[in-house]
Deep mutational scan, measured.
Amino acid sequence: KKRTSIEVSVKGALESHFLKCPKPSAQEITSLADSLQLEKEVVRVWFCNRRQKEKR
């Protein structure tokens, strides 16, 4: 599967949402994915990776 490159504006939106809620529910992920026109899986993986980055 190809890597999904996420645009800067979209990254900003994800980042601000992450600061409010680092662990969104499935429903939040779905609505966020719909509003940003991304697949749910892409958003879910982005949050997983972002939480891991926070640990480092």
Rank of each mutant, 00 (worst) to 15 (best):
H17V: 06
E41S: 07
G12Y: 11
C48R: 07
S9Y: 06
Q37H: 06
K1Q: 06
S31Y: 13
C48M: 11
E15P: 00
K23M: 10
K55G: 12
L38R: 02
C21L: 03
A13M: 13
V45W: 11
Q27N: 13
R56W: 07
K11V: 13
S25L: 05
L19R: 13
S25C: 07
D34T: 14
Q52C: 09
E7I: 10
E7P: 15
K1G: 07
L19W: 06
C21D: 11
S25I: 02
R56M: 15
R51P: 02
C48A: 10
E39P: 07
C21S: 09
R51E: 08
K40A: 12
A13R: 14
S25R: 04
S5G: 13
E41K: 04
C48W: 12
K55T: 12
S31F: 09
S35G: 12
F47D: 02
F18V: 00
E39S: 11
E39F: 00
K2A: 08
C21F: 05
V43D: 00
S25K: 06
L19G: 07
A26C: 07
R3C: 15
K11T: 12
R3W: 06
N49Q: 12
K11C: 07
W46Q: 02
K23T: 14
A33T: 02
V42W: 09
V42N: 06
A26F: 06
L36Y: 09
R51Y: 15
R56E: 12
W46D: 06
K23W: 06
K11N: 09
S9H: 14
P22M: 05
L38S: 01
D34Y: 15
Q27P: 07
K1R: 06
R50G: 03
T30L: 10
E28R: 04
Q37Y: 05
H17K: 05
T4W: 04
Q52F: 10
G12E: 14
I29G: 01
P22E: 07
C21N: 08
V10Y: 05
R51G: 08
L32N: 00
I29A: 00
T4Y: 07
E7V: 07
R44Y: 05
I6E: 10
N49R: 09
R51D: 05
K2C: 05
Q27D: 10
V42T: 12
K23Q: 12
R50I: 02
V10E: 11
A26W: 10
S9F: 05
C48N: 08
T4I: 14
V45K: 11
E15A: 01
L19V: 11
R56H: 11
N49H: 10
V43M: 00
K20A: 06
L32G: 02
R50D: 02
R50F: 00
L19E: 12
A33E: 04
F18N: 02
V45Y: 09
I29E: 03
E28K: 05
K2S: 08
R44V: 05
L38M: 07
R51I: 05
S5R: 10
E39W: 00
S16D: 08
R51C: 04
G12W: 09
A33Y: 00
K1A: 07
K53E: 03
K11G: 09
L38C: 05
C21K: 04
K55W: 08
R51F: 05
P22D: 09
K20E: 04
T30C: 09
R50M: 04
L19Q: 13
L32A: 00
A13S: 08
K53F: 10
V10S: 10
E15M: 03
L19H: 10
W46H: 01
A33W: 03
F18D: 01
K11A: 10
R3Y: 13
E7D: 14
E39N: 07
R50N: 01
V8D: 11
L36T: 03
P22A: 11
K11Q: 14
K1P: 03
E54I: 03
A26D: 15
K11Y: 07
A33N: 00
L19Y: 07
V43A: 03
E39R: 05
F18T: 00
P24I: 01
H17C: 06
P24L: 01
L14F: 02
L32Y: 02
P24Q: 02
F47L: 03
Q52W: 07
E41Y: 04
K1W: 03
R56F: 02
L36C: 05
E39A: 07
C21I: 04
K55S: 13
N49K: 11
W46K: 02
F18C: 01
T30A: 11
K2D: 13
K1I: 05
S35H: 12
A13T: 11
L36V: 04
K40M: 12
A26M: 13
K55A: 15
D34R: 15
E7H: 13
S31D: 14
D34K: 15
D34C: 12
A26L: 08
R56N: 13
K53I: 11
E41Q: 07
L19S: 12
E39K: 09
V8C: 06
K11I: 14
E15Q: 04
A13D: 05
F18I: 00
R44I: 06
F47K: 00
L14W: 01
C21T: 09
K55D: 13
E28A: 07
K55F: 08
W46E: 00
K55Y: 12
I29P: 02
P24N: 01
L36H: 04
E7N: 15
P22V: 03
L38F: 02
C21V: 05
K23R: 11
L38G: 01
S16N: 06
V10C: 06
F47R: 00
I6S: 11
P22Q: 15
A33V: 03
P22T: 06
E15N: 03
H17P: 00
I6Y: 07
V8S: 15
Q37V: 05
E54Q: 08
A26I: 11
L14Y: 03
K55H: 06
N49W: 08
R50T: 02
R51L: 14
A13V: 14
A33L: 00
K20G: 04
K55E: 14
S5K: 15
S9K: 15
S31N: 13
K11E: 13
R51K: 04
S35P: 00
